[in-house]
């Protein structure tokens, strides 16, 4: 029994270390390496790549643009998706609405990118950060609905009944009881959408104009070998900041008992 447990523990630890953490660690370690190639042994410690990144306007602009896109996507998706999440629960599975709003989940991101490009081009819309957000929202709607609806479903319906018994009408029950109890899920949905949108490359690639988001900047820079050390430092910054953000988000989510990223 314990032998199997030990083997499984070893396997889990190995996979997490080698497959998930090792590549990330390599990037962070080499961001302090003097040489411009990823060659062992390391050449020597330096922070000059960070100095270079921190004076790189394109990098900063791309981060700001990513934030703008993520913020627009998040607010748009919440505005459009949250009301449906509440009705999702009442109408149960059999409503055609549910399939209608969840279908984008079954479509590869690439296809969402392609249809958006075709659509915007056909309408003659100028591609911009706005068009990126508009296409991100397509995928974020089911994302938001699933996270929030899961929470609403898990609420004890007796809260609402109790409140209505006490004389509150439906709307007041919603505002004073249901909404506050759902608040954490909405917050989690917002953060997950924000992170997803910030990090999305495939949809963005098809719908962006001349501006650059962070993934687009990275994509462009990858083509220039001399840029590698700068990318390494920039990536390390994002890895570290991103890890902190994801850690905070996930621990908040676990504390509030919200399903593991919409899979529960």
């Amino acid at each position: 029994m314990s032998k199997i447990k030990l083997m499984l523990a070893g396997f889990t630890a190995t996979v997490i270390t080698l497959l998930i953490y090792f590549p990330i660690a390599v990037v962070v370690v080499f961001s302090f390496n003097e040489g411009i190639y990823f060659l062992l042994p390391l050449k020597g410690f330096t922070t000059k790549w960070y100095e270079e990144v921190l004076s790189n306007m394109e990098f900063f602009e791309s981060i700001v643009n990513s934030m703008i896109v993520a913020a627009m996507t998040t607010s748009g998706a919440l505005l459009v998706g949250v009301p449906a999440a509440f009705s999702f629960v009442r109408l149960r599975r059999n409503t055609p609405f549910v399939g209608f709003v969840l279908l984008p989940f079954l479509v590869p991101w690439l296809v969402i990118g392609v249809i958006s490009l075709v659509f915007f081009r056909t309408l003659g819309l100028q591609l911009s950060l706005l068009t990126v957000s508009l296409s991100h929202i397509i995928y974020s709607i089911p994302l938001v609905i699933l996270i929030v609806a899961a929470r609403v479903l898990s609420l004890n319906p007796n809260y609402e009944k109790a409140s209505m018994d006490l004389g509150a009408d439906r709307m007041r029950t919603f505002i004073n009881v249901t909404l506050p109890l759902t608040y954490p899920a909405i917050a989690v949905a917002a953060l997950i959408t924000f992170i997803w949108s910030f990090d999305n490359f495939i949809i963005t690639f098809f719908t962006i104009g001349t501006e650059q988001t962070f993934p687009i900047w990275l994509w462009g820079s990858l083509r220039h070998p001399t840029q590698v050390p700068v990318i390494t430092a920039a990536s390390s910054l994002i890895i570290i900041i991103g890890s902190v953000v994801v850690y905070l988000l996930e621990s908040y989510r676990i504390r509030k008992g919200i399903g593991i990223t919409l899979l529960e």
Partner: peptide
Amino acid sequence: LIPVEINYLI
């Protein structure tokens, strides 16, 4: 999840 939820291209 920490290193995977972000940093797609990285």
